[in-house]
């Protein structure tokens, strides 16, 4: 596993590289630790308060430790209407955590997201970016099993 320092350094000369650097760090660590934000502020020569602003502005970044496999549930209107709430309940029940939390074993994190562009087959969830379409509460255990 590459350290956050090396990762961030490799984007130092990319214009607007901080966002790409954050993406890369998150891919390794699944969240942005404080130290990575300090490092980014240094490398991109901006105040820490600003580097933190960038890290919290985008919903795909997390500044809190979270599970390795990030499950996102679309909460935009079409998915909502199609029963996203029941899927949420099933995921929460299955994992024993609430939305916004991670499982104690560090395996899963539950988050909301906005429309991911798959509205033809709602409700939609994504796990580490991979979309699952037409999700129903019954399908949840099987989907999760792939990652256990």
């Amino acid at each position: 596993m590459k350290g956050y320092k090396e990762i961030i350094a490799s984007y130092a000369d990319v214009p607007g590289g901080i966002i790409e650097a954050y993406h890369a760090v998150q891919k390794e660590l699944s969240y942005l630790p404080e130290e990575a934000i300090f490092e980014a502020a240094k490398v991109f020569n901006i105040p820490v308060s600003e580097a933190y602003g960038v890290a919290t502005f985008y919903s795909m970044f997390s500044v809190k430790p979270r599970g390795k496999n990030v499950i996102r549930i679309c909460e935009s209107a079409p998915c909502h209407v199609a029963g996203a709430a029941e899927v949420v309940a099933a995921l929460e029940r299955e994992l024993g955590i609430c939305m916004g939390e991670s499982t104690p074993d560090g395996l899963f994190a539950l988050e909301f997201t906005e429309c991911v562009g798959q509205c033809q087959a709602t409700p939609v969830i994504t796990i580490n970016g991979k979309p699952y379409l037409n999700v129903s509460p019954a399908k949840v255990p099987k989907i999760l099993a792939e990652y256990k």
Binding site: E34, I37, P47, V48, S49, E50, Y52, G53, T56, F57, V63
Partner: peptide, 20 residues
């Protein structure tokens, strides 16, 4: 001094001291 910045966005946005 850069003690204040924004955290989150939209409805969640707030002004916070460095690193929240």
């Amino acid at each position: 001094v850069y003690a204040l910045g924004l955290e989150d966005r939209g409805h969640e946005a707030m002004v916070v001291p460095t690193m929240g």
